[in-house]
Design a protein around this nucleic acid. Structure first.
Length: 747
RNA sequence: GGGCAUUUAGCUCAGUGGUAGAGCGUUGCAUUCACAUUGCAAAGGUCACUGGUUCAAUCCCAGUAAUGCCCACCA
């Protein structure tokens, strides 16, 4: 059927229709086209259900969509796996905020009701971002949509936990963790952020017990601290063993002010002689370094701050129950009154804050679960720098990742981001995987109720009752009637995200599409996510989850600053789609994607994309009109005539060159250059020159070359600008015709 | 404190060991011919700075400066 093309391209009129056409045509599902059975798979980094599309997602999804559409046209059995992440703390915070507006807290509701509320919220808002990705033209297979809390995904999470536990890699212990008083949970190292703060450095006099000669000023040691209130939990004062100033004080005792406790002066080479006074108060319960020192010197920690951020009884009667800030004031005041405050200096330093709530974190000791990262004391630095790529590493999870990257089993693109991974791995601590929030995967850990009622005939076996069982299902005690109760902790969200390349996939998909071909992601989650997916894949699938990791650009503001919602500097991709159309938006993004250089966002590129779309539209309008009026109707897409005319030969040759450039660029993830080449060719070679030349020609060859070039252009441009190319293609009067999206690539 | 990256036209960015390129913007001309969301043309640059290698450096090397990003348990 003939259909007149409008004079200008209208994305609004087109995009919805075309997307439905694709979906109804089953274009997103994988299919086998050639006999080679090559597969191509990408996993969408699952966006948080709390999120809405930002430029980073748009860039990521556009890149993935280009690769997916290209490989699909190439004939590979292609699939793009989409899904969303339950995003533990983030989602819980959103729902808690909502509750707060109603004057409630999660505690008022109770755990069960609260989780119901979160599910309600998820069902209502959790797929917004998926709908937004569709607007962008993402050709993901929505029939394979997953959620990190789906039932079989959850089963994988439990399986993984139990596997690690039985292997001895998961352990429970009372350790210092970063504790968020607002979220009431522990955080992993990677969830801690730092904020510069102008604080104070207090210099406190600690009297030495063994009296030095009277009247001398050295009958106390001065320590400098940013957190005077923690002195209530001091168990020692540490100095560097090489420090001459304190050499003869080592081993002597100090009478801890306000607490009137005797504590030793110890030597530890971790102490920096330059900083402060060179003497450090040691509070092993509330500082990581101090905990390390405390352990080395076998000093018992004293917990003086509790999980609500209040002082405990151990802080002393006067301080018990006070908030940390209040305690600080009071400690300072009392020290001053006692004449033990030497001086106060202004001091700028970084304080650790919660990446979700922004609250200052309290390092404190808490019962948590850890995943062991390192299994032997080998110096990792020497591993990385070693020239011998086959050098044996240990079998720890950390070493598995190191090994994979070092041996090239996984390639990080660009290569220099390997360093980010290496430096994290070199200093890695065991991963605190338990959280005290409610929304997430509850640990498959069961505790025996303390009250034990022995079964008949088992009165003497009661001692054999297990206190704790790690299992998928609730266990039953052999010897008594006491109920097992599931641990209230949930797992760190990233524990489940780490299983993303395989968890929740059907067995058939796992067989066909594991490993996937490339992981596309932003640099800020290289450690948080990529590193953990690598060891999870190796652990549970015995193979790398992906051979390549493409770290794409970060989109910054035009001024080169980070885009931030709170500062209002963020660009909304949906606004761009609304204003210019999805193709123009994709064009604008990719136009600026040169290598992996960060992008200083310039909307002019999107405007250029809109103009280009219109140009293409009119190229098609002219070409189709000419061909329609020609006696030489289109039969096939292939050009099968011998070319006589020189101009024809020239344009076909150029077309072939462009094809090679585009293929080469896509294969090496150079999307910007590919688009620039297409743009130049289409506008300046094809439209400006060839079409002008061909206007007066009436011969068959001209018409055939014109249509061949047009089809080739539509195909090559399709991965970049899918809507308009498909829309034009659908208007071509061919006999047998499929969707352009599954049409075969230019040959 | 450590690491990485960037610096080229008014703006956002490509690029090459041998007279410098695009998009947007600017200026002039053209046009009821597919497209004014157009065509043709023009103006506009000591390629951050200093030194080195070279017959020749915007490009390679070293250093400096500015900017940005990431990592880090200095009290």
């Amino acid at each position: 059927m003939k259909e007149e093309l409008a004079k200008a391209y209208d994305p609004k009129e087109t995009e919805g229709k075309i997307y439905r056409l694709w979906e109804e045509g089953g274009g997103f599902q994988p299919r086998t086209k050639n006999s080679e059975q090559r597969t191509y798979a990408i996993h969408l980094p699952p966006p948080n259900i709390t999120g809405s599309l930002h430029m980073g997602h748009a860039l990521n999804a556009t890149i993935a969509d280009i690769l997916i559409r290209y490989h699909r046209m190439k004939g590979d059995k292609t699939v793009w796996f989409p899904g969303t992440d339950h995003a533990g703390i983030a989602t819980q915070n959103v729902v808690e905020k909502q509750l707060k507006k109603e004057g409630m807290s999660r505690w008022d509701l109770g755990r069960e009701k609260f989780i119901e509320k979160v599910w309600e919220w998820k069902n209502k808002y959790g797929n917004i971002i998926i709908e937004q990705l569709k607007k962008l033209g993402a050709s993901a297979d929505w029939s394979r949509l997953r959620f990190t809390m789906d039932e079989n995904y959850a089963n994988w999470v439990k399986k993984a936990f139990i596997h690690y536990y039985e292997k001895g890699l998961i352990y429970r212990g009372k350790r210092i963790v970063s504790w968020c008083v607002a979220c009431q949970t522990s955080l992993s190292d990677l969830e801690v952020e730092y904020k510069e703060e102008s604080g104070k450095l207090w210099f406190i006099k600690y009297p030495i017990v063994a009296p030095t000669p009277r009247g001398r000023s050295d009958n106390y040691v001065i320590v400098a601290t940013t957190r005077p209130e923690t002195m209530l939990g001091d168990v020692a004062v540490a100095v560097n063993p090489k420090d001459k100033r304190y050499k003869n004080l080592i081993g002597k005792k100090i009478l801890l002010p306000l607490q009137n406790r005797e504590i030793p002066i110890i030597a530890d080479d971790k102490i920096d002689m330059i900083f402060g006074t060179g003497a450090v108060k040691v509070t092993p319960a509330h500082d990581l370094l101090d905990a390390e020192i405390g352990e080395r010197h076998k000093l018992e920690p004293i917990d003086i701050i509790d999980e609500r951020g209040r002082m405990t009884a151990a802080a002393g009667e006067k301080f018990k129950g006070l908030k940390v800030a209040e305690a600080r004031e009071k400690v300072v005041r009392e020290l001053e009154e006692a004449g033990l405050l030497e001086k106060i200096e202004d001091y700028k330093h970084n304080v650790a804050i919660c990446y979700r709530s922004g609250t200052v974190l309290e390092p404190l000791r808490s019962n948590q679960w850890f995943l062991r990262m390192v299994d032997h004391p080998q110096n990792p630095k020497s591993i990385r720098q070693s020239a011998d790529k086959n050098q044996k590493l240990g079998t720890s999870l950390r070493d598995a990742v190191l090994n994979a990257v070092k041996s090239g089993k996984v390639k990080i693109i660009p290569e220099n981001f390997e360093k980010i991974l290496f430096s994290w791995l070199e200093n890695i601590h065991d991963w605190c995987i338990s959280r005290q929030i409610w929304w997430g995967h509850q640990l498959p850990v069961w505790f025996h109720e303390p009250k034990c009622i022995p079964k008949k005939g088992h009165e003497s076996d009661v001692v054999k009752c297990k206190e704790m069982v790690v299992a998928v299902e609730k266990p039953q005690c052999e010897f008594c009637d006491a109920e097992f109760k599931q641990s209230e902790d949930v797992l760190d969200t990233w524990f489940s995200s780490a299983l993303w390349p395989f968890a929740g996939l059907s067995e058939a998909d796992l067989k066909d599409f594991y490993p996937s071909n490339v992981l596309i992601t932003a640099r800020d989650i290289i450690n948080l996510w990529v590193g953990r997916m690598i060891f999870s894949g190796l652990e549970f699938q015995k193979a790398m989850p992906f051979p390549e990791v493409l770290i794409h650009a970060t989109i910054l503001t035009k001024e080169g600053k980070r885009m931030s919602k709170s500062l209002g500097t963020g660009i909304d991709p949906l606004g761009l789609i609304e204003k210019y159309g999805a193709d123009a938006t994709r064009f604008g993004i990719i136009w600026q994607t040169m290598g992996t250089q960060d992008i200083h966002w310039d909307e002019a590129a999107v405007q250029a994309g809109k103009k280009f779309a219109n140009k293409l539209w009119n190229i098609a309008r002219f070409s189709l009109m000419k061909i329609e009026n020609s006696k030489f109707k289109i039969q096939k897409l292939k050009l099968q005539v011998k070319i006589q005319n020189n101009e024809d030969r020239k344009i076909l040759q150029k077309l072939d060159e462009v094809k090679k450039i585009v293929e080469k660029n896509i294969n090496s993830y150079e999307f910007g250059p590919a688009l620039h080449a297409l743009y130049d060719f289409i506008w300046h070679d094809f439209a400006d020159k060839y079409i002008e030349l061909v206007k007066d020609r009436q011969d068959e060859e001209a018409d055939l070359v014109l249509q061949h070039a047009l089809f080739s252009i539509l195909k090559m441009l399709h991965p970049f600008m899918p809507f308009i190319t498909e829309s034009i293609y659908q208007k071509i009067g061919l006999e047998k015709k499929d969707l352009l999206m599954i049409e075969s690539w230019v040959d």
